[in-house]
Design a protein around this nucleic acid. Structure first.
Ligand SMILES: [Mn+2]
Ligand SMILES: [Mn+2]
Ligand SMILES: [Mn+2]
Ligand SMILES: [Mn+2]
Lengths: 221, 221
DNA sequence: TAGTTTTTTTAGATGTATCTAAAAAGCTGA
DNA sequence: TCAGCTTTTTAGATACATCTAAAAAAACTA
């Protein structure tokens, strides 16, 4: 029935999943190219191939969406990625800014038994170290009520529950201003010129640029 | 200085390492082809490439040996393979016949930090679940005094300390006759016709074929 | 609507890893 | 020593993943 996919094919599926997960209805060639860091021409080739394998729906000039099979595979990849991140963080004590890149490789190891044992070994965690929900082996997500910090009203009190980028640079910056999951913020000011915020956190005032605030996921608290 | 190697290149290095580790002085094209399960023609191509990268010494029709750089890389691969096997066995409770194939993939994950943290997390084990010694991060092996079961004299008492094949079939067979690391044997008979042995183990008599006995590593005890 | 710009696809190459078939080299035993 | 067998290499394909440049389609916008 189903042939094994190459790492590359898997990374494309995950990219399309990420893009269509939130706003976008279809994943455009250019968006995918940016996500997997390759040329648009390469993406077109791969979209044809994944379409032939019935993992995506793709028509020339109309972008791609995942089929049910594609969704299932992409969700399993996300599950593996996030469980490995928990392993690296909880068990091997890696800092949160170093785990994403290693998990990007570990997620391609192919064994359902392995990942289910790992899940169990880790105590069936429901969120990864960046606050993202971990799909169950049936592919179920636990969605959480969250907003981005740039969208909450002035004077609100919120708690950081996630970050939408996992890059080492971004997370290292958050470390430097002493911001981590669970950190509480009170919005003390909004600058409409550049959409930056002033917030109170751990008893100190911080300036948060829009570039940063739109990647911080918070809930009321 | 040093470019990253592909999984394939790494598997060839490990194959040459294994072949030249014991008896053979050089690894022949055919031996390597058998080890990595490919054609002799493909091996010739790869030997040229690894020679160009100064990881092996190779001359047409004369087989290959590892250079110091090649030895270093192959030893690190063996270290990674065996440490992952310990993880799968000790932490995830996989049976010993299922760990080799998964470790074959995990060994290619590229991070010194990862493998040193894993080593530490596992309590710096010195042997893997098949009884093979685990190289240190400096590439040092702890060699052990061992012989193959087919070479010990009649009436000897020995303990199983290792197995030289990690295939699921072989290890499942050992499970079926209740043989594991630490099992004690007393050689009660030798059949010179087919080199099979009769041994006493756990209070029962077992017939061990030569094919099996030459893959059982024992020490006196 | 008719440029103009942006996005996407096609065409044509390159590099890696593989294969089979055929040629060449090496080994061996009468 | 040389004929025949074995081993290894070469030659020529294929498949995959990638690229750049050019062409085509779609989307803006004046
Ligand atoms: Mn991640
Ligand atoms: Mn990946
Ligand atoms: Mn093994
Ligand atoms: Mn391997």
């Amino acid at each position: 029935m189903e042939n094994k996919l190459s790492h590359t094919e898997e990374n494309y599926l995950k990219a399309i999943f990420k893009i269509t997960e939130r706003a976008e209805k279809v994943a455009s060639t250019n968006k995918i190219a940016e996500q997997v860091q390759t040329s648009a021409a390469s993406v077109t080739d791969m979209l044809k191939k994944l379409n032939d394998k019935s993992l995506i729906n793709y028509e020339k000039y109309k972008g791609a969406t995942l089929t049910p099979d594609g969704i299932r595979l992409a969700t399993q990849l996300v599950r593996k990625h996030r469980l490995w991140e928990v392993f690296l963080y909880d068990k091997l004590k890696f800092p949160w800014e170093q785990i994403h890149d290693i998990a990007e490789e570990l997620e391609h190891i192919n064994s359902d038994d392995l990942i289910n044992r790992l899940d169990n070994f880790l105590g069936n965690p429901r969120f990864d170290p960046h606050g993202d929900p971990i799909p169950t082996s049936e592919g179920k997500f636990m969605l959480r009520n969250q907003s981005t910090l740039d969208s909450v009203p002035i004077h609100s009190k919120v708690i950081l529950v996630g970050v939408s980028h996992h890059s080492s640079e971004f997370l290292t910056y958050l470390n430097s201003i002493n911001v981590k999951l669970g950190t509480k913020f009170k919005i003390t000011g909004k600058n409409s010129y550049d959409n930056s915020l002033t917030v109170e956190s751990n008893g100190t005032q911080l300036l948060i640029t829009h570039e940063v605030s739109k990647n911080l996921l918070v809930k009321p608290g």
